[in-house]
Design a protein around this nucleic acid. Structure first.
Lengths: 199, 199, 199, 199
DNA sequence: TATGAATGAGGCTTCATTCAT
DNA sequence: AATGAATGAAGCCTCATTCAT
C-alpha cells in the first residue's frame, strides 16, 4: 500500500515534535510567556506556521505538552532521587542544585502558573497540571520523611514541608527570569539548611 | 452644589484613579494577566475606555501603577513592621500571616513577574519593579538580623535569608491562584519555624 | 456625565449598522456567500474591519442579522398582503411579482439555506431561520385558503400549497444567481396559473 | 496473483475514483459545501490527501466531477423516462417521486448553485453546469408537451413549465437539508396535480 | 500508486490606542 | 471630564496544493 518507510516516518515525526517543543521552551525563555507567538515558535524551530499546526492542534496544546513533558521528567527525576542511595540531606541538596542549575526552569514555572489561570488554557490542561504538581510533591515528601527518620531534617508534616520546599524553589526560580537583576544568588547549601535540624 | 475648586477636582481625580486601579486588580484576578484588556478594566470600573485613557497613558502605565502602589504599600507595611516593637519571630509571623490573608496577592505576584519579562513592559517599568523588590528585601533582612542577634533565627547572610523568605512566600502565593486545588494549606507557624533556631 | 448627544449617538449607531448590513447583502450578491469575507464586507461598507466587529460579534452574527431582517421584512410584507383587499389570485400575483422584481432575493435564499447547514452557523441561528421560514408560510397559506373559498385556487391543504408556492419561488430565485444564464424568464402570470382553478 | 494489465489498472483507477466521489458527496451532505475540505474528503474515502490529488487536479475538479456525474445521470434518467411508455402524468409522477426519494439531492442542488457562483469555481465549470441544467430541461419539456397533446397537463410554453417544475422540485429539495425541520412533507401526487388539467 | 509532511497565503478576530463630540 | 466609535496591526488558525519518498 504505502511506499514509505513507516517506522522512519514515525521517527521523523517524533524528531520534529521534539524540535518544535525544545525550541519553543527556549523561545519562551527569551520572549516570555505572554509575548511568545506561534510565529516565534515556528521561526525558532525552523518550520513553517502551518507545519506547527500539523503537529499540534493549538498553541495551548503546545504549552500543555511542554508542561506534560517538563513535569513528567521532573517527576521521574525526583522519584529516582527519592529512591536512590544516600541520606535525605544529600538528596535535598542534589534536588536543589539540579533546579538551580537549569536556566530554563523559570519558564516552566511561569508556564505552570500561567496554564492554571482561567482563560489561559482549557479546564483539562489546568487539571492535569495541578494534578501532576501535586503528585510530584510525593517523592519530595518521602525525602522529608526519610530525613526526619534519620534525624537530619526538621519535623512537621512531610507533605507540608515538601510543599514549602517546592514553593521556595519555584519562588527563587521566578527571580531568575530574564531582565531580572536581583543581586543575590541562591545557594543550595543555605536553602537545604532551612530544612536541616543540626545547627 | 459645592463650587468646583482645584482641590475638589483633585479629589475626584484621585477617587476615579483609585476606582479604576482597584477594580483592575480584581479583574486581573479573574481574567488573568495575559487576557485582561483595557475593555475589561474599563467595564469593571464602570467607566468608558476613553476615560481610562484620560487618567492613564497606556495599559502598561496601569500595570505599572498597580505595581508601584502594591509594592510601596507592602514596603511601608514591612518597614513599619521591622521598626516596631517585638521580637523577630513575632514579626516574621505577622508578615507571613498578612501575606497569606490577602486573597489578591497571587495577582500582584504574577504581575510582578510578568512585568519583568522583556516584552511585557517598558525597560523603565521593569527596572522600577525590580528595584522596589530589592529595596523591600531590606526590612525583611533587618528582621532576620534582629532575629539572629536575639538568637531566635537561623544564621547566614540576613539579606540572603530575606530573599529565601520572600521567595517562599511568593511561591506559596502562586499556588493560590484561581482554579488551583493543591490540597495543602500553608500555615504561618510552620513557615516561620523553618527560619527559627530553637527546635 | 456624558457630553455627547446620546440620542444622536444611537441614530448614528443604527445608521452604521444599516450601512454595514445593506452593503453586505449587496456584496454577497456579487461575491457569493461562500467567498465573501469580513474584509469584503468592511470594504463595501467603507468601514474598517475593526469597526465591523464593533457592531457585530462575528461573521455569523452578520449573516444571522441579515436573515432576521430579510425574513421579518418579508413576513410583514406577506402578512400585510394577506390581510389586504383583493382576491387571492391578485394577491398571489403581487407576491410573485414582488419576489421576481428584487434582484437580491437569490442571495437571501442561498443565505437561508446556507445558514441552515450544520457547520455554517450556530444551532441557534439555524433554529431561528427555520422557525421564521415556517411562520412566514402562514400568510401564504391564508391566501391559499381565501382562494379556495373564492373558488379561484386549486384544492388541497393550504399550508402544503403555500409550501409548494414558496419552494417554487425560491427554486426560481436560485436560477437567477450571477453567472447564471438560463435562457428562460419566469413570469408571475404563468406561475400563479399553476395554482389557479379556472382554465 | 492476477497479473497486472492495463485493463485491470483502469478498473482499479475507476474504482478508486468512485470511492472518492461517492464518499465526497456524503461528506458534503454532512459538513456542508462551504466547510468541506480536501482533508475531509480524503478521510471519508479512507485515502491519503496526496492520493486524492493523484486522481483529481483540484478540489474544484472534484466538485465539477460530482456535478457532471450527478447531472448526467439525472439527464439520462429523465431522458429515458421521457422516451418510455406511459402518459405524461405518470411520467411526471415518477420523476417527482424519484427526486423526493433520494436523500442526497439537496447536496447536489446546493452544489449546483454554489458552483455557479462567480468565485466558487472556474468559468468553465460554471458554464458546464448551467449548460447541462438547461439541457436537462428538454426531456421534462418533452413530457410537458406530451401531456398537453394528451390533454392531461396545463397549457403554456412547455420549456417554461419544465423550468417551473424543476425549480419547484429543487426548492423543495433544499427544504430537506440536514437540520431542517419544516413540518410539512412534499407529496408527489399534489405536486403533479399543479401541472394537471383535470380538476 | 500511495503517503503525509511541508508551505504560506488568507481568513477571522482581538485589542491598544486615538479622536471627534 | 466623559464617551464610545473608529482604526489597523498583529495574532491564531485553516486549507488547497506541492513534493520527496
Amino acid at each position: 500500500m504505502s511506499p514509505r518507510n513507516i517506522e522512519r516516518d514515525l521517527q521523523v515525526r517524533e524528531a520534529r515534535i521534539n524540535q518544535i517543543l525544545n525550541s519553543a521552551i527556549e523561545t519562551i525563555a527569551i520572549k516570555g510567556i505572554g509575548s511568545v507567538s506561534i510565529n516565534d515558535i515556528a521561526a525558532a524551530a525552523n518550520v513553517s506556521i502551518g507545519n506547527v499546526y500539523h503537529y499540534f492542534k493549538s498553541k495551548d496544546e503546545i504549552f500543555a505538552e511542554i508542561l506534560r513533558r517538563g513535569q513528567t521528567d521532573y517527576g521521574q527525576h525526583v522519584a529516582s532521587l527519592a529512591g536512590s542511595e544516600g541520606n535525605a540531606r544529600e538528596k535535598l541538596s542534589l534536588l536543589c542544585e539540579s533546579w538551580l542549575a537549569i536556566d530554563n526552569n523559570w519558564a516552566y514555572t511561569i508556564l505552570i502558573h500561567t496554564a492554571r489561570l482561567s482563560d489561559a488554557s482549557s479546564e483539562e490542561t489546568r487539571r492535569a497540571v495541578t494534578s501532576r504538581f501535586t503528585n510530584n510533591l510525593e517523592p519530595v515528601a518521602a525525602i522529608m520523611e526519610q530525613g526526619q527518620r534519620e534525624g537530619l531534617l526538621v519535623g512537621g508534616s512531610p507533605l507540608e514541608l515538601a510543599y514549602y520546599f517546592v514553593s521556595l524553589i519555584q519562588g527563587l526560580t521566578l527571580q531568575r527570569m530574564p531582565g531580572n537583576e536581583v543581586p543575590i544568588r541562591a545557594r543550595a547549601e543555605s536553602i537545604v539548611a532551612l530544612f536541616t535540624v543540626d545547627r
